[in-house]
Simulated scan of single mutants.
Amino acid sequence: MRYTDAPARREELLRRLSAEGYVSSSRVAEELGVSEMTIRRDLRQLEGDGLARRVVGGASLPNLGHGRPFDERAVTGSGEKRTIAEACLELLDGAATVALDAGTTVAPLAGMLRPGTTIVSHSAPVIQSAIERGDVELVAVGGVYQSETRSFAGAAARRTIAEYAVDVAVLSATAVDTTGILCANSLDAELKQELVRTARLRVLLVDHSKLGSRAPIRVGGLDLVDIILTDAGADPDDLKALRDAGATVVVAGEHTPAAAGPLGDETGVGVS
């Protein structure tokens, strides 16, 4: 069988996953006669479809629950996530009120914002961090608790968020591709949309594994946010595809031209 077309490759990957429970990206790339990057893209697609779970060096069968536990996701890529959060601080200069979405990449920001900042959030880890700090103003958004994302959602949460006008909304996502911003939970998607409506500047924080990936629920197009901030592990092809589709994508730690932002004439987004 030839493996030059994606459907055939993915069927073979699924067959091997079912038989062995794990596939190595490098090994299967060699055996199928394609590049390892091609296999990683296939595995990313299968993960987005809920059929595989990417791990270091390859992929395994997915969990049978509603996705990976929050604490497990928080540990995975924690270094990259903190780097992204630190880079995001530059975009928050002059912001008095910041809305923080639920997500393991956004959560570290709660401990980094300058004293006196007003934090609006439905994320339990963010709320807890703000309470422990004691030197920020906190608007804790309540509602129906979701253990998967450790956050509150529902109509009550949407109404609370709608009452506030924030300077910057910092968002998370399960995946981002050229069609837009994606997540795995409809209640989560509704809150992201509400956060976007309240903010002057919208920033999306995603580690490189989310770029070009897929998830079942579309939050909105790439124009939903002003800036996408990711880490240096991003695939250049993914970055180019998003930029060609009109997105402003910034890689944390790289020197990039300043991007226009609604908090001022220019918002500096690149340092090296």
Rank of each mutant, 00 (worst) to 15 (best):
V136L: 08
D71F: 06
V106Y: 03
H255S: 13
G79V: 13
S209Q: 13
L222K: 07
A184R: 15
S209D: 07
L100G: 01
L92S: 04
S151Q: 04
G270C: 06
R9A: 08
G212E: 06
D49R: 15
V225I: 07
E137L: 03
I161V: 15
G58N: 10
I228H: 00
A215N: 05
A232E: 11
L43Y: 03
C88T: 08
I161G: 00
I181P: 02
L13D: 01
T198M: 05
L242Q: 02
T160S: 07
E90Q: 13
G264Q: 14
L17R: 04
R44L: 12
Y145I: 12
S18L: 09
P236A: 12
L46D: 05
G77S: 08
T76L: 14
T149K: 11
L224G: 00
R243P: 01
T160M: 15
G111F: 02
L89E: 11
S25N: 06
A95F: 08
E11T: 14
S60Y: 08
G268T: 13
G79N: 10
D265M: 11
T256N: 10
A140H: 07
G94C: 13
L14Q: 08
T97G: 08
E194G: 02
A156F: 15
D5K: 05
E137D: 12
I228N: 00
P236E: 15
D244T: 14
R133C: 09
G143D: 10
G180D: 09
R9Y: 09
D167E: 13
I119N: 00
R133I: 07
S121P: 03
L14D: 03
S121L: 04
A162R: 04
G220E: 07
L205T: 06
T105Y: 11
S121A: 14
C88W: 02
D223R: 08
S25P: 01
D71A: 12
V141L: 03
G48P: 11
H255K: 14
I228W: 01
I127A: 09
R40H: 14
S213M: 10
G264N: 14
T117F: 00
R214L: 13
L239Y: 04
V203Y: 00
D93A: 15
V23Y: 05
V176I: 13
G65L: 06
E20G: 03
M37D: 15
A162N: 08
D226I: 00
A85Q: 05
E30H: 10
E132D: 13
H208T: 04
R82Q: 15
Q128R: 15
L182S: 05
L187K: 13
L92I: 10
P108K: 05
G142M: 07
D135E: 12
L138K: 09
G116D: 02
E80V: 12
V166M: 00
T267K: 03
L195I: 02
E132A: 15
V120E: 00
V136A: 06
A87Q: 05
V28C: 10
V250R: 02
E12S: 10
S151V: 03
